[in-house]
Design a binder for these strands. Structure first.
Length: 386
DNA sequence: AACAAGGTCAACCGCGGGCTA
DNA sequence: CTAGCCCGCGGTTGACCTTGT
């Protein structure tokens, strides 16, 4: 048996509501509540179907609806949530008090979507369009994607469990190697974040991934553990109702972390990375001191990849991604990121493939700068730095 | 002033999930 | 377990408005 229509189609009015109809609906609901929408029109004296009444009430007449222009903050929230949730308008609306899903959907389609497209950002993936294309060329990422996603889910579950057991202690990152007048990290002051529990499942997955690749093209398979791990942890505070968010292609193949000094130079890739042979980048070149944060452990070539990562380094990387601000020493600015893992990838200009930095380094760095410059305003506004 | 093109947004449509008998 | 029903969601439509020529 086919499903019957929600209401009698014949004789029911459609189209725009008149003020009289609005008044009837408002008066009835204020006096009686809406109850069964199906039964409401007859009781309220309206020649409309229940569905139409519900829509009119929820999207327009409800007293707790805010109408009018969206504020900058609301725009930012929508974009951030859309990056997380996709076209789940009701979920997005639940984070924007007094805004309806329909209104948000319309605003997205008519304003925000176009704005992103104009900036060369794919409004679906929230990544630069070129980058998306590059990714799809690399099918080798797929197995890693699954591995990462699996690990992430496990980590998420763990975090939920742990968060119920632990006090929320803000992590204050200091380093004994830092001069006292130069706090290791002040990022938390800018964007306070909940504490960062260790994410060992993720780390393990990454470690395993590294070891599997160890015999392949040693130099070309440069592993950028800092950035990977930081990105992974940076997603911890995402309210991720599904397992589909953001991680995918770009995260898996991410291999550069972007840091800038105050002259807008991007951190050279070999400095920002941790290579598979256990050596964090830098190689003692002259840039080592100015990019000190990522080269702290670079001299110890005998270390395994994972031991090479010190907790505080990871945390700094994570906070760089999550919060943004200065790394106290001189002039290094960690770019700022919050909830948008996939966007982060674009904004700092992570490259997308395991690259041969011997030959492509300059190009890669240049691309990072271009990516960042093109979208700087967008990210600044997103992050409230304007 | 007239027309076309593009933009906006309220409202509609159809689908799918959840509840109940 | 299944069918019937209701509700909410997301995609789409089309009337109205604005802007450009």
């Amino acid at each position: 048996m086919g499903r019957p229509p929600c209401c009698e189609k014949t004789g029911l009015k459609k189209g725009p509501w008149t003020p009289e109809e609005d008044q009837k609906l408002i008066a009835f609901i204020e006096n009686n509540g809406h109850g069964s929408w199906r039964a409401l029109p007859a009781k309220a004296g309206l020649r409309r179907c229940g569905k139409s009444c519900r829509l009119r009430w929820t999207n327009y007449l409800r007293p707790d609806i805010k109408r009018g222009k969206f504020s900058l903050q609301e725009e930012q929230t929508i974009i951030q949530l859309h990056a997380l949730l996709g076209n789940r308008w009701s979920a997005i609306a639940s984070h924007l008090p007094k805004r309806t899903d329909n209104e948000i959907k319309n605003y997205w389609n008519t304003h925000l979507k176009k704005r992103l497209e104009k900036m060369g950002i794919d409004p679906t993936t929230h990544k630069p369009k070129m980058e998306s294309l590059i990714h799809f060329k690399d099918g080798s990422n797929l197995s890693h994607m699954a591995q990462w996603e699996s690990a992430r889910l496990e980590a998420e579950a763990r975090l939920v469990r742990e968060s119920k057991l632990q006090e929320q202690n803000n992590i204050v990152l200091t380093s004994s190697s830092q001069p006292p007048q130069q706090p290791r990290l002040i990022l938390n002051k800018i964007t306070p974040q909940p504490s960062l529990p260790p994410c060992l499942d993720v780390l393990k997955a990454w470690q395993s991934s590294c070891s599997q690749n160890k015999n392949n093209n040693d130099k070309k398979k440069t592993m950028h553990v800092h950035s990977m791990y930081a990105m992974m942890l940076a997603t911890d505070d995402l309210e991720s109702p599904t397992s589909t968010l953001c991680f995918p292609q770009s995260m898996v193949s991410t291999n550069q972390i972007g840091l800038m000094n105050n002259e807008n130079y991007l951190l050279p890739p070999e400095v920002a990375t941790v290579k598979e042979d256990g050596c964090c980048g830098g190689d003692g070149d002259s840039s080592e001191s100015s990019w000190r944060y990522f080269t702290k452990h670079s001299t110890d070539r005998d270390e395994e990849v994972m031991p090479c990562l010190q907790d505080d380094d990871i945390m700094v990387a994570v906070d760089a991604l999550r919060g943004g601000g200065y790394y106290g020493n001189n002039d290094v600015v960690a770019m700022a990121f919050t909830p948008l893992s996939s966007n982060v990838n674009m904004a700092v200009g992570f490259s997308n493939e395991v690259q041969d930095f011997d030959s492509n380094q300059d190009l890669a760095t240049e691309n990072l700068e271009v990516h960042f410059e093109e979208n700087k305003d967008y990210w600044n506004s997103m992050l409230g730095y304007k």
